[in-house]
Design a protein around this nucleic acid. Structure first.
Lengths: 180, 180
DNA sequence: TGTCTCTGCGGCATTTTGTCGCACCCAAGT
DNA sequence: ACTTGGGTGCGACAAAATGCCGCAGAGACA
C-alpha cells in the first residue's frame, strides 16, 4: 500500500471511551501512524477540517451525534480517506449505512489494532467466503431490533411498543450486547 | 413519486428456491413490476445482458457462482440499477461486500415483499401505499425456524444445532405452535 | 413552574431456556 | 441377532430471561 509514502500517515481516532482511545492510540503510533484523537463528533469535526487525516477509526455509538455523520463528513472532505467504523452494536443495518456513507470497512468490537490495520488495506475484493450457516435466532432478533429501533429514531419506548415487547426487556437486550 | 411513469418497471429475481421465486414473483407483479426470474447466476447473466432490469432481487447463496458476482455485473451494466441482496445466510462481512459492489440494500430472510419494495427506496406504484407494521419478533423467529427446518429436511436435531439453540427448546417451540 | 415522555434501573413473580436423563425407533454394520 | 449411532419425545429441575411493577432524573414545551 502506497509504497512511496515519505511522510508519516495521519490517523484520526474518535471514540468516547478514554481508555480505548489511549490503548489504540499507542498501538497505532507504534505501527507508524501519527495519531490524533477526539471523544465526540463535535470535537472531531473541526479537528478534521483543520487537518484532514488519511485514515480514521470511528466509533458509531457515542454521546452526541452518531459517528455516521462524521463518516459522511470525512468522506466528503476527501473521498480518499480510509475510514474504519468500529462499534459495539454491530448490525447489518448500520454496516450497510456506514459503507454507503463512505466507510471502507466495518468492524465490531472488540477488534485489535492488527485487525483494524488490515481493514484499512482491504479493498473490495469478492474474496468473502459465504458462511454455510444460517443466521442464528439471536442474531436474527438483534438485526430486527436494530432496524426497528433505527426506524423509530432510536426511541426505545416506541420501539418496544411497536415490537409488542416490554420496554424493560428491550433495555436489557440492548445493554447485554453492548457490555459483552 | 414519478407520477409520469408510463412503462412498467422491470425486475429481475434470482434465487434457487423455486417456491420462493414464485411467491415473490407473484407479489411483485401485483405491486406493479414486470418480473422475470432465474435460478442461478449463470442463467441470470445472459438474461440481464439481453434485457437489463431496473430492479433486481438477488440471493447470495446459490448453486454455482455467488450472487455477489451478479451484483457486480449488474452494477457495471448499469449503475442506476437498484439491487437488493436477500439471503438467509446474512453476515456483516457479506453485507459490506455487497454494498461495496453496488447493492442498494441488504436484507436477511425472511423478508416480505413490502420490506423489499421499501428497500428499493421507491414507491413502485404509489397506489400501493401501505405502512408495514414491523413484524413481531415471534413471527420473525417462527418463519426463520420453518425455513431452516425445511432446509434440513425436517431434522429437528440438526436444525437446533445449526441454529445454535437447544434441541429441547426447538421442540417446545414447535409443539407450542402446533397446539394453537 | 407543571406536565409529558423517555430513560435507566432495582426488585420480584412468572415463564422460558438450558441441561440432564431415559425410553423408544430405525437404519447400518458386524 | 446384536451392537452402534443418530433421531425423537418427554419429564424434571435449576438457571436465565421476561413481564410488570415503581421511582427518580433529564429534556421538551407551554
Amino acid at each position: 500500500m502506497t509504497p512511496s509514502d515519505n511522510d508519516i500517515p495521519t490517523m484520526l481516532l474518535v471514540d468516547d471511551d478514554a481508555t480505548f482511545r489511549e490503548v489504540l492510540s499507542r498501538a497505532m503510533t507504534k505501527r507508524g501512524f501519527s495519531v490524533s484523537s477526539a471523544d465526540s463528533v463535535e470535537t472531531a469535526l473541526p479537528q478534521a477540517r483543520a487537518n484532514p487525516p488519511e485514515f480514521a477509526v470511528i466509533d458509531l455509538k457515542m454521546n452526541g451525534a452518531s459517528g455516521l455523520v462524521l463518516v459522511q463528513a470525512l468522506h466528503e472532505l476527501d473521498p480518499a480517506t480510509r475510514i474504519v467504523v468500529l462499534t459495539g452494536y454491530a448490525s447489518i443495518a448500520t454496516a450497510v449505512e456506514a459503507i454507503k456513507l463512505g466507510a471502507t470497512q466495518y468492524l465490531s468490537k472488540p477488534a485489535n489494532a492488527d485487525e483494524i490495520v488490515t481493514a484499512f488495506g482491504h479493498s473490495a475484493r469478492s474474496d468473502v467466503q459465504l458462511e454455510a450457516q444460517p443466521v442464528s435466532i439471536g442474531r436474527l432478533e438483534w438485526e430486527h431490533i436494530q432496524r426497528v429501533l433505527h426506524e423509530n429514531g432510536d426511541n426505545i419506548t416506541a420501539t418496544a411498543r411497536v415490537l409488542n415487547m416490554h420496554r424493560r426487556t428491550l433495555q436489557r437486550k440492548l445493554a447485554k450486547r453492548q457490555a459483552s
